[in-house]
Computed example of a mutant assay.
Amino acid sequence: MDKWKGKVALVSGSSTGIGANITKALANSGLTVIGLGRRVEAIQDLTNQIQSGKIIAKKCDVTNETEVLEVFKWIKDTFGHLNVFVNNAGVIKSDLLLESKTEDFKSTFDVNVISACVCIRESVKLIKANGSFGHIIVINSVLGHRIPDLPVPLFNVYPASKFALTAITQTVRQELAFQQANIKLTSISPGMVNTEFLTAYDSSFCAGLPRLKCDDVTAAVLYALSTSEQTQVEEVILQAVPEYC
Results as ranks from 00 to 15, higher is better:
residue 131 G to N: 10
residue 134 G to F: 01
residue 134 G to V: 05
residue 135 H to L: 10
residue 138 V to N: 15
residue 139 I to L: 09
residue 139 I to N: 08
residue 140 N to W: 00
residue 141 S to H: 01
residue 141 S to M: 10
residue 141 S to N: 09
residue 142 V to E: 15
residue 143 L to A: 06
residue 145 H to S: 09
residue 146 R to V: 10
residue 146 R to A: 14
residue 147 I to M: 08
residue 148 P to D: 11
residue 150 L to V: 15
residue 150 L to W: 01
residue 154 L to T: 09
residue 155 F to Y: 15
residue 157 V to K: 02
residue 159 P to E: 11
residue 159 P to F: 00
residue 160 A to M: 14
residue 160 A to V: 08
residue 161 S to G: 10
residue 161 S to I: 04
residue 162 K to C: 07
residue 162 K to Q: 06
residue 165 L to N: 04
residue 165 L to Y: 03
residue 165 L to M: 15
residue 165 L to K: 07
residue 166 T to G: 05
residue 166 T to K: 14
residue 168 I to F: 12
residue 168 I to G: 12
residue 169 T to H: 08
residue 170 Q to A: 11
residue 170 Q to C: 08
residue 171 T to G: 15
residue 171 T to S: 14
residue 172 V to E: 06
residue 172 V to M: 07
residue 173 R to S: 14
residue 173 R to G: 07
residue 173 R to P: 03
residue 174 Q to W: 02
residue 174 Q to L: 12
residue 174 Q to K: 15
residue 174 Q to Y: 09
residue 174 Q to P: 00
residue 174 Q to G: 09
residue 175 E to K: 07
residue 178 F to K: 13
residue 179 Q to L: 13
residue 179 Q to Y: 08
residue 180 Q to N: 14
residue 180 Q to K: 13
residue 181 A to H: 07
residue 182 N to G: 01
residue 182 N to D: 13
residue 182 N to V: 04
residue 183 I to F: 07
residue 183 I to P: 04
residue 184 K to G: 09
residue 184 K to F: 02
residue 184 K to T: 04
residue 185 L to C: 01
residue 186 T to D: 00
residue 187 S to P: 00
residue 187 S to G: 02
residue 189 S to V: 06
residue 190 P to I: 11
residue 190 P to E: 09
residue 190 P to G: 11
residue 191 G to K: 01
residue 191 G to A: 14
residue 192 M to K: 05
residue 193 V to E: 12
residue 193 V to H: 07
residue 194 N to Q: 12
residue 195 T to A: 08
residue 195 T to E: 11
residue 196 E to W: 00
residue 196 E to A: 13
residue 198 L to W: 03
residue 198 L to A: 07
residue 198 L to E: 09
residue 199 T to A: 13
residue 199 T to R: 12
residue 199 T to K: 14
residue 199 T to I: 02
residue 200 A to G: 05
residue 200 A to T: 03
residue 201 Y to G: 06
residue 203 S to I: 10
residue 203 S to L: 11
residue 204 S to H: 05
residue 204 S to A: 14
residue 205 F to L: 00
residue 207 A to R: 11
residue 207 A to N: 13
residue 208 G to T: 06
residue 208 G to R: 05
residue 209 L to E: 14
residue 210 P to T: 04
residue 210 P to R: 04
residue 212 L to A: 03
residue 213 K to Q: 15
residue 214 C to N: 14
residue 216 D to N: 15
